Amino acid sequence: MLTETEGRAAVKLARKTIEIFLSKGKSPRPDASGVELSPVFEEYRGVFVTLTEGGLLRGCIGHPYPDSTLKEAILDSAISAATRDPRFPPVEEEELKNIVVEVTILTQPEKINASPKELPDKVEIGKHGLIVKQGYCQGLLLPQVAPENDMDSIDFLSHTCMKAGLSPDAWVKGAEVYCFEGQIFKEKEPDGEVIEEKF
């Protein structure tokens, strides 16, 4: 788990990275951000960066698995959320003052070994995020998605399947389901105080 100070640093690093990238057109080095990073940022962690504008999603991309150091994953995810989310046009530099930055640090995903009938009981709303895999298809929804959208565990499983490009009932028909937890740090307002969000 990250401390509140580390969580604030994670969000600051994400924002600073986007600012530098939008103004200079190139990725900053993690140590050029001016943000003091503790040793936890050298650990390999999964992470997602979410951008919202006026309460609406503006970009969300991340590393589901701990495939790089936390600082590198935040850098890459922040730039991707701002400029490479295929659902949205790239963020403009002057738009950044209206955007709230959120960073979710993930635990290692673990396969839920349960029959389809038992699966919904294994999913804890507000605690678990989900990954559904079948063949080449894979979809992920963060832990905050279910409570923010009033989903129960069956809705959550179905929406994760659809995110993977599968039918909503793929989880009943043998798709693999993984769960993970996330620690969420976000700005209360654009470039404002950073809080840890709990559901």
Rank of each mutant, 00 (worst) to 15 (best):
T3Y: 11
T3H: 12
E4A: 14
E6P: 09
G7I: 01
R8C: 12
V11L: 05
K12N: 14
L13I: 07
A14E: 12
A14T: 13
E19G: 07
I20A: 07
F21P: 13
S23Q: 15
P28K: 05
P30S: 08
S33F: 06
S33G: 13
F41R: 02
Y44Q: 14
G46Q: 00
V47W: 07
V47H: 09
F48L: 08
G54S: 05
G54L: 02
G54F: 02
L56G: 09
L57W: 01
I61E: 11
G62E: 04
H63S: 01
H63G: 00
P66E: 03
T69V: 03
T69Q: 01
E72L: 11
E72I: 11
D76K: 14
S77Y: 09
A78K: 01
I79Y: 09
S80Y: 04
A81M: 03
A82G: 05
D85E: 04
D85H: 06
R87P: 15
F88P: 02
P89V: 06
P90N: 04
V91Y: 07
K97I: 10
N98A: 11
N98L: 09
N98Q: 09
N98S: 14
I99N: 06
V100W: 00
V101S: 13
V103F: 00
T104E: 07
T104Y: 01
I105V: 15
L106S: 13
Q108A: 08
I112G: 06
A114P: 08
P116V: 01
K117C: 04
K117S: 12
K117R: 14
G126Q: 05
K127S: 10
I131C: 06
K133L: 12
Q134G: 08
Y136E: 11
Y136L: 14
Y136G: 09
Q138F: 03
Q138L: 11
Q138K: 13
Q144N: 13
V145K: 02
A146W: 00
P147H: 05
E148F: 01
D150C: 05
M151H: 11
D152H: 05
F156W: 01
L157R: 02
L157F: 06
H159K: 10
H159P: 04
C161I: 01
M162W: 06
K163L: 02
G165S: 09
G165V: 08
L166Y: 02
S167I: 12
W171Y: 12
W171F: 13
Y178R: 10
C179T: 15
F185M: 10
K186N: 04
K186A: 10
E187C: 07
E189I: 15
P190M: 05
D191R: 14
D191M: 13
G192N: 08
G192Q: 08
G192P: 10
I195L: 10
I195W: 04
E197A: 08
E197P: 02
E197Y: 13
F199R: 15
